[in-house]
Amino acid sequence: MVLDKKKALTFQELLFTLQRFWADRGCVLQQPYDVEVGAGTMSPDTFLRVLGPKPVRIAYAQPSRRPADGRYGENPNRLFRHTQLQVILKPPPERVQEMYLESLVAIGIDLKEHDIKFEEDNWEWPVGGAWGVGWQVMLDGLEITQFTYFQQCGGMDLDPICGEITYGLERIAGFLQDVDSIYDIVWAVEPDTGRKVTYGEMRLAEEEQFSAYSFDYADVGRLWEHLNSYEAECLGLLEKAKGFEGMETLELKRFPVLGAYELALKCSHMFNLLDARGAISVTERVGVMARIRMLVVGVAKAYAAQGQMLNEVAKEGVAV
């Protein structure tokens, strides 16, 4: 009675099913963010939307790049870029754990046939001044999900707090299809011919080349230049953001805090590349991380301030 491989969802069916599941529960489906991020949490749809009082339900798949985890496509379990399905529920509904377990049933996991444990695992992104408490969800010994109650973001306490469910899609697909290598996961089946398109076909070249790029080819001097120039641009915007008080409503509304956030994310990615390249000494590391933290936290604070001021303007507008 080993898992029925024929019935197992393909990689893309897995994504459809989870998206459908959460859309049916009130989540707005967003497309992946188009700037390099190391985790779904760093997308502004999580990092910025968790701030402030406004309720949010949103779900999206997020390709997540971690250059140092690249293995030239040689390791069957490690990827330079993997895919997270991120679900944000603010505030978290009371039965959020049960909802999550129902989602596993939806993708073909019969809970009565498996061993599920919620083991303590607290999440933290120091550069974003963000942390939460929660669990790693273990399915027959495999970590398939990180489940977090977000407590702080950008160094600010959240109220309401936010529930975050992050599914590791490759791991779940590998489990469902019972394959030992990520590259053997069936991504899609051609309906006419039944031909299987594998994860390897879709992504192996990318793993090989980006591993080579981040470990061997990337020009360290230029990466530093990029980092410095993105940082300067971001700092310039943050400096201007100090003048929110004196801005007209339209100017305030159009002020590109979101742009500043992209620049901060760019810096974070440059840092990850330099790190993979072995170009950051441990002594430098702390300093550079502090620089990026200043950008990310600065953006979060500006975003919160902008939102709050616009809210007040809106309220006054009604009153007048």
């Binding site: 080993v2 390791n75 379990n77 046939e113 010994g141």
Partner: peptide
């Protein structure tokens, strides 16, 4: 396990756990 199952059910769970351990050992060997 935080679970109980008959032998057929345990076989499914055994298979899953063995698969994860194999991946971990592969990593370690790598």
């Amino acid at each position: 396990l935080n679970m109980e199952a008959d032998e057929a059910g345990l076989e499914v769970i055994r298979h899953g756990n063995a698969r994860v351990l194999r991946a971990r050992f592969n990593d370690a060997r790598f």
